[in-house]
Design a protein around this nucleic acid. Structure first.
Length: 199
DNA sequence: GCAAAGATCGGCT
DNA sequence: GCCGATCTTTGCA
């Protein structure tokens, strides 16, 4: 299995988000591999993107978004959930792709145990569920997915169909169609995109 | 210092 | 469809 190189991540974020569909997300915990095919992503950029954590510039939390592409950015939100992103754009320019859902292909038993559910389609069909299934938290922020042996990406087959929509759960920037997903997959999240503001 | 919002999920009506 | 849980980060006073 080959991995995408640094340059793959260092591009225009929506393009990276689109191209990550079909790739495999690999997580290794205590020598056990958990693998899923990425079926849903969202792009977040910098100064021009009001939905992005990086919209107002660099902070303690989001600084990794401004660094070298191909690193993990994991943050904690709503007092409950960790969300996994992979940084994008050239160094100095903010960007990250939120991984929203995967189709499990390896280590399903452990993922179901971590989640406390018995249905494969409910193991990782949402950004918060996915991180719980794969035991991902803020400690993994900064992890270099190009070289890491515990959290990384492998190239996979091209998905048949790809659709795009507005992003989910945001208050600003809802008019940008920066959510990408595989409509034929049962592992895509059920969440509905935010509606564009019409005041 | 403090208040408020947040890239969510699951349960209940 | 709506609501509550729970806590970190940020922005502004």
């Amino acid at each position: 299995m080959t991995r995408p190189a640094r340059e793959f991540f260092g591009r225009y974020t929506p393009k990276v988000a689109r191209d990550l569909l079909g790739c495999r997300l690999v997580r290794v915990v205590d020598g056990i591999r958990m693998v899923g095919i990425i079926v849903e992503t969202e792009a977040y950029r910098g100064a021009g993107d009001p939905a992005s954590h990086a919209f107002r510039g660099k902070t303690v939390r989001n600084q990794v978004m401004f660094g070298e592409p191909g690193h993990a950015y994991v943050y904690f939100t709503y007092g409950f959930h960790h969300l996994l992103n992979i940084t994008t754009e050239p160094p100095g320019k903010a960007g990250a792709v939120l991984i929203r859902a995967i189709a499990p292909v390896e280590g399903l038993g452990l993922m179901m145990k971590n989640r406390g559910v018995e249905s494969p389609s409910q193991v990782a069909d949402g950004p918060g569920k996915l991180t719980r299934a794969l035991k991902i938290d803020r400690k993994l922020t900064g992890e270099d997915v190009v070289t890491s042996d515990r959290l990384f990406i492998e190239e996979g087959g091209k998905p048949g169909r790809v659709r795009r929509s507005g992003r989910v759960g945001i208050q600003h920037g809802a008019e940008r169609k920066w959510r990408y997903y595989v409509p034929d997959s049962e592992f895509v999240s059920k969440a509905r995109p935010s509606r564009p503001q019409n005041p």
